[in-house]
Amino acid sequence: MGYLGEIFVMAMTAIFIQNFVLSRFLGLCPYLGVSKKLDSAMGMGLAVIFVMTLASAFTFLIQKYLLIALGLEYLQTIAFILTIAALVQFVEMVIQKNAPALYKSLGVYLPLITTNCAVLGVAILNTKTFRSDGITPYNFLDATLNGFFSGVGFTFVLLAMAGLRMRLEMAPLPKSMKGMPISLILAGIMALAFYGFMGFKI
């Protein structure tokens, strides 16, 4: 399998088979919190893609050249959180100055995902997963791409949820089911549906 095939496998795994929300159950807070409207779900999704990609790249470098080099792998969690928080703050400042339009659409959501578990999750999983051959650990490009695809998977599920919830607003539901209860049931059904992807061999 060439490298393109490897990327394809990685994308399919991150988006469908090992989706961050529906099979790893990370990032559930924005999944239920920001999925009421399609456009805010889109903004949140883009912010997550952005931060996940950057965080994957930076934490990979931190892990390889700082933690492993000095034999301090047990500091992984704290070092990654520190890196991601600083990175998000920095990126926020940069885009506020250089891309006001992008800042307007991402601005509110960026600080919200600083300490999101899905972002930390992708950073940690990058250090523990292997390519499809099962022995080669991820290199820098693999980790960055995996971060990107995981973000895409998150956005995909968030958008699907937002679309469904917008339709449910109109549905003639019993009063006790309106709002969060039906959303939780919906989330469960979506997770079951995604369970069908589990075990696919690409």
Partner: peptide, 25 residues
């Protein structure tokens, strides 16, 4: 080593953010 590494990372990130907040004000 861990104290230096984590403390140093915090220090560097803090400095970068402080400088960035001036540049990108």
């Amino acid at each position: 080593p861990p104290i230096l590494i984590v403390g140093g990372m915090g220090l560097i990130f803090g400095l970068v953010l402080a400088i960035a907040s001036k540049i990108f004000f």
